[in-house]
């Protein structure tokens, strides 16, 4: 391989899958080590900081729950941006990015739901409340699962990508409406909820581990996303080679 030609000089060079694979191969070890390092620092901070005088030890759940929730939303934003890339610029890597972000985003959404539930049990006394935030997240989870199911149901990757992109974008436009409607619904059904967590600003004591953990989870997301994209490119390459081989065999 000529090393020079593989250098990424501009954003458009990223459109070349071969260059992307080479770049991903070079970046991945660094990103993975950074992720491990950040998690090491973050987890140490998580367990060494003082417990909250009100919530006790359960405040430590927040260090996982909140970053997971952020990443669940960021995952969908990444998908929406990629969907725009697919539909508007027909960027060849955009549909790969959208497809690979879905399982990872769904994983983080599930994590946010599970930890939220585990947080809710000792704090609110119940595993699940139809709280506005929880409900919107549950709907987000359903949307992720629907998109994964759609990707799995279609054979032709290119066509699946465009159709999924439409759905992702409509879902993205819909998220504020869903959020708004669920808020409305929630205030209607449980006025003056005492179950809400105190909306006060987070104490700096808790902010530091939270931020480090958020960074660690973000790094983890991008590491996984990059690796999954590389695999997806390989998968398509394999399919193309198989077709090629079949065609060659047929014409020979």
């Amino acid at each position: 391989m000529r090393e020079r030609s593989l250098a990424i000089r501009s954003f458009t060079d990223l459109a070349n899958p071969t260059r992307f694979v080479a770049l991903a191969g070079r970046l991945l070890p660094w990103l993975a080590s950074l992720t491990v390092l950040l998690f090491a620092i973050g987890l140490t901070l998580c367990f060494t900081t003082a417990a909250d005088y009100q919530q006790g030890e359960t405040v430590r759940i927040m260090y996982i729950h909140v970053p997971a929730a952020w990443l669940a939303m960021m995952g969908y934003t990444v998908m929406a941006a990629s969907a725009l890339g697919t539909l508007v610029w027909r960027h060849p890597l955009a549909d790969v990015a959208a497809k690979c972000a879905a399982p990872i985003g769904a994983g983080f959404t599930a994590l946010a739901l599970v930890t939220g539930s585990l947080w809710g049990k000792p704090m609110w006394g119940t595993w699940w409340v139809w709280d506005a935030r929880l409900t919107s997240f549950f709907i987000l989870f359903l949307m992720y699962l629907g998109l994964i199911a759609l990707n799995r149901a279609m054979d032709d990757a290119g066509r699946a990508a465009k159709v999924a992109a439409v759905l992702i974008l409509v879902g993205f436009v819909n998220i504020p409406i869903i959020k708004f409607s669920v808020d409305w619904w929630n205030t209607l059904h449980q006025p003056a909820s005492v179950l809400r967590l105190g909306g006060s600003a987070i104490d700096p004591e808790f902010r530091r581990p939270l931020l480090v953990m958020a960074l660690a989870f973000t790094c983890l997301f991008f590491t996984l996303h990059l690796a999954a994209m590389r695999t997806e490119i390989w998968r398509r390459r394999i399919a193309a080679m198989r077709r090629q081989a079949a065609r060659g065999a047929a014409s020979a």
């Binding site: 709907i139 359903l142 949307m143 699962l145 629907g146 998109l147 199911a149 759609l150 149901a153 279609m154 066509r159 699946a160 159709v163 439409v166 759905l167 409509v170 879902g171 819909n174 409406i177 869903i178 708004f180 409607s181 669920v182 409305w184 619904w185």
Partner: peptide, 28 residues
């Protein structure tokens, strides 16, 4: 439905895809 056109067996998947999006309609 337009998405389902591209699918071999779209019927059930359409409901799954559309249901989360119509939640606001139901609520209001």
């Amino acid at each position: 439905a337009a998405v389902a056109v591209a699918l071999p067996r779209g019927g059930l998947l359409v409901s799954i895809l559309v249901l989360p999006l119509v939640v606001p309609v139901l609520i209001f």
